[in-house]
Amino acid sequence: MNRSDVLIELDQVNKSFGAFQVLKGISLSVKDGEAVCIIGPSGSGKSTILRCINGLIPIDSGSIRVGTHAVHKMKTEKEMRPLRHQVSMVFQQYNLFPHRTALQNVMMAPIQVLGHDPKEVEVRARRLLAKVRLSEKADSYPGQLSGGQQQRVAIARALAMEPQVILFDEVTAALDPETVKEVLTAIRELVDEGLTCILVTHEMKFAREVADRVCFTDHGRIVESGPPAQIFDAPQDPRTREFLGQVL
C-alpha cells in the first residue's frame, strides 16, 4: 500500500469507559477513495471507532491521523473544526435538527460553521436533496418525514460539508425493511463516486457488495480484515465464522 494514499490511520488505539475497555489496540488504515465496512457483534466497539475518528470521543492512548490532522492531539472543539469539515458523520437515529426544515438542516452548518455564501449553499443543498431524491420534501420538518427520508436528509447534510470522508454509524438499523433499500442506494452511489466511506453496518449483503474491505471486530479488537469475498466466504478466525454463522 502506498503510504501517501492513506487518508485515515489508527495505530494501537485504546479506549475505556470507566472499567470497561471498549477498544483494545485498534489499528486500521483507510486509503483515499476506499469503502471499509466494520461488522461485528453489538458492544464490540464499532461505533466507538467511528466516534474516535472524528474526535467525538477522546482516546486514552495510541494515535489517530486523518489527512494532516493528528486527532489524538486535539483538545478543544475549536481545534477540531477543520477535522470536522473533512470528516462528516451519519447517525443511526438520523439526529436531524427538529426545529429546521430539511433544506435548512442541509444548509445550516456550511453557512454557520464554514461561513460559506448562503446563496451558493442553497444551490448546493437543493442539488444534494435532488441527489437523495427528496427535492419535493425540502420544506418539510424532520417530524413530517419517514425514517428513511430523514436518513437521506442526514446524508445530504453530511455531504453539504464537502467532506473527504463520511462515517456511517449503523444508518439503517432504525429503519423499516422497506426503507432500508432507499438509504443503501444513496450510499452506494457515494461509494461508486469514490468518496471515502467507513460504514458500521449489520447489512451483510450490502457490505459484501459495496465494501473494498471488511473488518470484523469482537471485544474491542479487529479480529480479521480483508476483501469481502475472503471474510464472507473463507473466514480464517473461528470467531468470525461463529458470528457470520449466526447472522447470515
Partner: peptide
C-alpha cells in the same frame, strides 16, 4: 443525539447553544 450531530458538524460550544440547543 442533537448535540452530537452539532458537534460532528463542527459547531463550537457557543454556536451550538445559540443555533441549536437554545432554539429547541
Amino acid at each position: 443525539a442533537v448535540t452530537e450531530a452539532a458537534r460532528s458538524l463542527g459547531y463550537s460550544r457557543w454556536q451550538r447553544f445559540r443555533r441549536i440547543e437554545a432554539p429547541i
